[in-house]
Design a protein around this nucleic acid. Structure first.
Lengths: 250, 250
DNA sequence: CGATTCATTGACCGGGATCAAGAACCGTGG
DNA sequence: CCACGGTTCTTGATCCCGGTCAATGAATCG
């Protein structure tokens, strides 16, 4: 979580301690495929994914599910909830996950008294917005192959940015149906595209462990340009933690 | 602009005056198809559309343009710019428009000293995010006909919410190519779908003036559910300004 | 070790893209 | 007022990416 926030700028020791304290306070384990918060609800708490994998999604009239974003460890789920009356989408785990709750009032205090943390949260919201805009391009203008490559590459980058993985091998415990829900394709077609990506030596999968064999090739297939993630403060500095973690990827 | 912000909650007279002052200070007319701010730039000012119509867009390698959002009067263009180093997309007018500039430092002062305005801006960002998420569903899961209906209906609602129009007739000075860039379709197909919508009595167009003849039918075709716009505070109250303006539409 | 979920394969179909050409609508200058 | 060149809008013919349907393996799990 702290690593996530420090992708924007380093936090003073004081802030780090505070964040640590708040997120240690109340934690809960969720199984895979459990809702953390549902559309229309209003929770007094905000949630932060600490480990595992979650997603923002919406169910459509016809029963289809659209996944709008993946949430990797460190991502706040619903920091907006004390501005808005209700959630306009749901959040669920995809894999078993550890999630921290912070009470809305403590959160408010922190945002008011800790400008550094407030800025980091704001940055996080803006990054989310950038990710969403990029998704629109992805869906509107790229073909199925690029779209899937793009999703995989983005998760790879974001996981590396928070230091969950060190190389190109990562736990990505989602089904092809989940990927289809995220890309707006059918599971059948996702399957075919993944096969092609394996044939072309871009990725390999053994169960839930995915390996990106050819990062440059994948980035290329995805037409990936990381500038929308606004990781530049951290990543442009090759001395920084995040800079090291992202070397060669963006 | 004030009407836009008050969709979240009414502002005290003091705040309204301040907003008025700041947006009156420096204004500039843009012609149609002019860039207000370009991808990669960093401007010391933030911009707000006061009249006309603008859009967020991105140019792709292949020359395609993807429009990611329409900006109607009252919408801030780049309130985030003093958090982020650079814009990850461009903003351009579609029609001749009046745009206000507010200096970043004045903006910062205002956000720090006027919690009401700060909240309203935050709400505005979150609404933007909701709009983006809805677009992802739109592009990922709905067919061309619904997608176009959806775009038209959203613009109708948002224009009514800020009180630019009173009935279902509005100036929507965009070309079919623009609409294609926004929906991720080809101009040819947009044309065919618009014809179908005219045939079915949903809309009519005379030059730049569009009329929604059958709002309920259009909303239906669009599968439109306005909850993501978070207009509930204002719109749920039938006595309020915005409530009156949106009556029967959402 | 059945049962259920997940991955894979094949045959077929259709929505929307693509290409191309003509019509209607500009703003502009003579 | 009309002639013009350039957008924008329309229409038709054709093609292909990705959806749909359905059946079969392969994993995973009580």
């Amino acid at each position: 979580m702290i690593k996530r926030m420090e992708q924007y700028m380093p936090l003073p020791e004081e802030d780090r301690r505070l964040l640590n304290e708040l997120t240690s306070d109340r934690q809960r384990h969720y199984a895979a495929r459990e809702d953390i918060i549902r559309e229309g609800e209003h929770s007094p708490d905000i949630h932060i994914v600490l480990s595992g994998l979650a997603c923002r999604y919406k169910l459509l009239e016809n029963g289809n599910r659209q996944i709008m974003a993946f949430l990797v460890p460190g991502d706040p789920c619903d920091a907006e909830i004390f501005i808005l009356k209700h959630m306009d989408h749901s959040i669920a785990t995809l894999a078993p996950s550890l999630v921290a709750s912070i009470s809305g009032s403590k959160m408010k205090d922190m945002l008011l008294n800790r400008p550094g943390i407030a800025l980091a949260f704001w940055w996080s919201t803006l990054q989310d917005e950038g990710i969403l805009r990029e998704r629109i391009i992805d869906e509107g203008r790229r073909d199925a192959y690029s779209r899937i490559a793009y999703m995989i590459y983005e998760v790879l980058i974001r996981m590396r940015a928070v230091g969950i993985i060190d190389d190109q091998k990562f736990e990505f415990p989602i089904t092809q149906t989940d990927l289809a829900d995220a890309t707006g394709l059918t599971p059948v077609h996702v399957n075919r595209m993944l096969q092609r990506m394996r044939d072309e030596g871009l990725i390999s999968t053994e169960g839930k462990v995915w390996t990106v064999l050819d990062p440059a090739g994948l980035r290329n297939a995805a037409r990936f340009d990381a500038s929308y993630l606004h990781l530049d403060r951290a990543a442009d500095d090759p001395e920084s933690e995040a800079g090291k973690r992202l070397k060669g990827l963006i």
